[in-house]
Simulated scan of single mutants.
Amino acid sequence: MSTDIVTRRRRRFAGVYLGYLIAALIFSGPVLFMWWSAFRHNVDITGSIFDITAPLTFENFTNLFDRFAFLYYIRNSFIIAGGSTLAGLVLGAPAAYVIVRRKMAGLGFLTLLARMAPGVLFVLPLFILSVNIGAPSNTALNFALLISAHLIITLPLCIWLLVPFFEDIPVSLEEAAMLDGCSVWDRFRAVVLPLVLPGLSVAVTLSFIFSWNYFLFALALANNDTLPLPVIAFNFIGQGASDYGGLMAASALISLPALILTIFAQRWLVRGITGGAVK
């Protein structure tokens, strides 16, 4: 191999890795800046943004828990995001299976329209429904309404993430199970679902993250007992002054569960691929 070819390959790989580095800085830079600012004084954030010599502090986090019942709002976020993710998966997995096997692409497109529409279109009808059923004064009803509202986000996402995985499963596998006397539900539960574990993992991860971070429905529909974390973080921004340190600390804590879930979902992805492989 000539020296010129080796040099060209090295330059090409250097260009590729440089592109990776630039992409990593673009995507991870704001996140790293958020975590760094969470440990800085508010005056340092507004006065000298990139001063690395400024002292670090845990004051933003301590003030966060002193000012708000932060653990209570974390629980609320888990109830809403977890409930909507679980409901979206329970309803979305059979729906995606039916759409694929019955070739009902039109029905799948209708569910996608709800995801494509801006969330503000649903706020007024949901608010009127909330008032009519007494949800503002009933914590359980309010949680149920918020979970149902977040299904607008999670259900279409689950369906359209799982459709390609169901399409890759040969019909012959289900036909073989049918010859053994398996019902439709048995085929779906024992044959199909183990083969789409990677898709289930992706659907759970993305649905939870989208629901966890969604702001609009909780702002309009939640009462004082059901407020989730994104609405609480909004309190750090005011007209006269803004607590950027507290906002960054709240944002860092809000992003932590989604980050942890993503890390664990990678293991489930690999396990699903090896456990559900067609042999």
Results as ranks from 00 to 15, higher is better:
residue 138 N to Q: 07
residue 227 L to C: 05
residue 56 L to G: 07
residue 247 L to R: 04
residue 162 L to W: 08
residue 3 T to F: 05
residue 156 P to C: 08
residue 54 A to E: 02
residue 112 L to R: 00
residue 17 Y to C: 02
residue 112 L to C: 01
residue 112 L to P: 00
residue 274 T to H: 06
residue 257 P to H: 09
residue 70 F to P: 06
residue 143 F to N: 08
residue 54 A to V: 03
residue 37 S to R: 05
residue 101 R to P: 06
residue 27 F to N: 03
residue 109 F to M: 00
residue 173 L to T: 05
residue 142 N to H: 12
residue 150 H to K: 04
residue 275 G to R: 10
residue 213 N to I: 01
residue 58 F to V: 11
residue 118 P to D: 13
residue 189 R to H: 14
residue 97 Y to V: 01
residue 11 R to V: 05
residue 10 R to F: 12
residue 91 L to G: 05
residue 1 M to I: 05
residue 32 L to I: 10
residue 9 R to K: 12
residue 85 T to H: 06
residue 139 T to Q: 13
residue 18 L to K: 00
residue 200 L to S: 04
residue 152 I to M: 09
residue 27 F to R: 04
residue 227 L to F: 01
residue 80 I to Q: 07
residue 267 R to A: 03
residue 279 K to W: 12
residue 26 I to T: 13
residue 21 L to G: 14
residue 178 M to V: 05
residue 22 I to V: 14
residue 99 I to F: 01
residue 216 L to R: 07
residue 35 W to N: 03
residue 18 L to W: 09
residue 248 M to V: 03
residue 220 A to G: 02
residue 102 R to Y: 05
residue 92 G to H: 06
residue 207 S to W: 03
residue 182 C to M: 03
residue 4 D to A: 14
residue 60 N to Q: 10
residue 207 S to G: 15
residue 107 L to K: 00
residue 33 F to K: 06
residue 271 R to K: 12
residue 6 V to L: 10
residue 58 F to N: 10
residue 61 F to Q: 03
residue 36 W to D: 13
residue 261 L to V: 08
residue 209 I to S: 14
residue 229 L to H: 07
residue 211 S to Q: 09
residue 212 W to G: 03
residue 57 T to Q: 04
residue 256 L to Y: 02
residue 57 T to W: 11
residue 21 L to T: 15
residue 74 I to Q: 02
residue 61 F to W: 02
residue 171 V to N: 13
residue 29 G to N: 10
residue 175 E to V: 07
residue 56 L to R: 09
residue 268 W to D: 09
residue 233 A to C: 11
residue 235 N to V: 04
residue 195 L to G: 07
residue 277 A to Y: 12
residue 158 C to Q: 13
residue 202 V to M: 11
residue 155 L to D: 08
residue 34 M to G: 07
residue 254 I to E: 07
residue 115 R to E: 13
residue 110 L to H: 01
residue 146 L to V: 08
residue 85 T to P: 08
residue 152 I to W: 02
residue 184 V to W: 05
residue 261 L to I: 14
residue 46 T to N: 09
residue 258 A to S: 15
residue 54 A to I: 01
residue 256 L to K: 08
residue 223 N to T: 05
residue 64 L to H: 11
residue 197 L to W: 15
residue 4 D to L: 08
residue 238 G to R: 12
residue 172 S to N: 05
residue 251 S to N: 10
residue 72 Y to R: 15
residue 243 D to V: 03
residue 9 R to D: 00
residue 212 W to H: 04
residue 210 F to M: 06
residue 223 N to D: 12
residue 225 D to T: 03
residue 7 T to E: 04
residue 164 P to Q: 07
residue 81 A to I: 08
residue 63 N to P: 00
residue 109 F to K: 01
residue 206 L to Q: 13
residue 56 L to S: 11
residue 152 I to C: 01
residue 25 L to F: 13
residue 273 I to A: 15
residue 188 F to L: 09
residue 235 N to A: 15
residue 210 F to K: 10
residue 119 G to H: 03
residue 4 D to P: 00
residue 175 E to R: 13
residue 167 E to P: 09
residue 104 M to G: 02
residue 219 L to Q: 15
residue 121 L to Q: 09
residue 191 V to K: 07
residue 51 D to E: 09
residue 32 L to P: 05
residue 157 L to W: 02
residue 188 F to D: 10
residue 190 A to V: 04
residue 174 E to I: 04
residue 70 F to M: 11
residue 78 F to N: 12
residue 211 S to T: 06
residue 182 C to Y: 13
residue 25 L to G: 10
residue 4 D to K: 14
residue 263 I to F: 14
residue 82 G to S: 09
residue 199 G to Y: 04
residue 99 I to M: 05
residue 242 S to L: 07
